[in-house]
């Protein structure tokens, strides 16, 4: 009896969390005149909202832009994060603690204070309307450094010593020895970084004006707000569905990793 009550609550919860997405997909496939009264499934499926959306905005180009930006940032964060994390956990040098404290301090610094001056920097560098402006400020991530530092600490010193005797340089040690032994850390940092940059919208809104360089969240936002959807709800929802699709697809396959990664990054903050 009590069990049944538990299940009722859980199913109710699942409905509340899933229903809006189901509604979104089914509304984006419904004929425009049915959407306002739609509760669950439309009477028939039509792709006209999607066709109109592709006509109005360069969503394909935006997908490629988002891919380029999020992938480059993720690779940068993994490479630089593990270099710094390695130095901080495995090498002795003057100023190491100072750098560590700076990192900890930076993590607590609210972004509100750096937003305006960072924008001014991008203007002065001439990086407005460029991939560079979207990517470079995000190539380094303090949370990633801390996570790599922690993970590398757990790797046995013998492994590193053996590599040194074989004549490996430090970069070979990081990318050839530590990386293959740090797959969980790489996956965690990779997933969080990719997801965060894929969903980032404030910074692109500030840095990009040229429609051909816009990332997906930015393009969809401006489309939804700017009135170009001409109050055609279906087209708006089709754009929203396109924006959600890639991350949801990845989530369905790597669900466990997503949840674990997000949980462990939440713990650290």
């Amino acid at each position: 009896m009590k069990k049944l009550l538990f299940y009722i609550f859980l199913v109710l919860g699942a409905v509340i969390f899933l229903y809006p997405f189901i509604w979104m997909i089914s509304a984006s496939l419904a004929p425009e005149n049915e959407i306002s009264g739609l509760t669950f499934l439309p009477s028939g499926i039509t792709f006209s909202s999607y066709i109109q959306m592709f006509d109005k905005i360069p969503i394909g180009k935006a997908f490629i832009n988002s891919m380029i930006v999020a992938s480059t940032i993720t690779i940068g964060v993994l490479v630089f994060g593990s270099m710094v994390g390695y130095a901080l956990s495995r090498l002795e040098f003057k100023g190491r603690n100072l750098i560590f404290y700076i990192i900890i301090f930076t993590m607590t610094l609210p972004f509100q204070i750096t937003l305006i001056p960072q924008y001014i920097l991008i203007v002065k560098f001439g990086w407005i309307d460029s991939y560079t402006g979207l990517i470079v400020p995000y190539l380094m991530n303090t949370l990633a450094i801390i996570m790599f530092r922690q993970y590398f600490k757990s790797i046995p010193q013998d492994l590193i010593d053996a590599a040194r005797i074989d004549g490996c340089g430090e970069l070979r040690i990081i990318f050839g020895i530590l990386w293959p032994n740090s797959l969980p850390a790489l996956a965690t940092v990779g997933i969080i970084t990719f997801m965060a940059s894929w969903n980032e919208v404030l910074w692109p809104l500030i840095v990009i004006r040229d429609e051909n360089l816009m990332t997906m969240p930015q393009l969809v936002t401006l489309f939804a707000v700017g009135g170009r959807a001409e109050s055609q709800l279906g087209v708006k929802l089709a754009a929203a569905t396109m924006l959600a699709l890639p991350i949801v697809a990845a989530y369905i396959f790597f669900q466990k990793y997503f949840i674990q990664s997000m949980a462990s990054s939440g713990m650290k903050e």
């Binding site: 899933l18 919208v201 949840i259």
Partner: peptide
């Protein structure tokens, strides 16, 4: 399954969530 369902909105862009709730 339940955990994954409750977690879904966390990974989806805030833009999508906002457009949805606006409706």
């Amino acid at each position: 399954f339940f955990r994954a369902a409750f977690f879904l909105p966390v990974i989806v862009s805030g833009v999508v969530v906002t457009i949805l709730w606006q409706q």
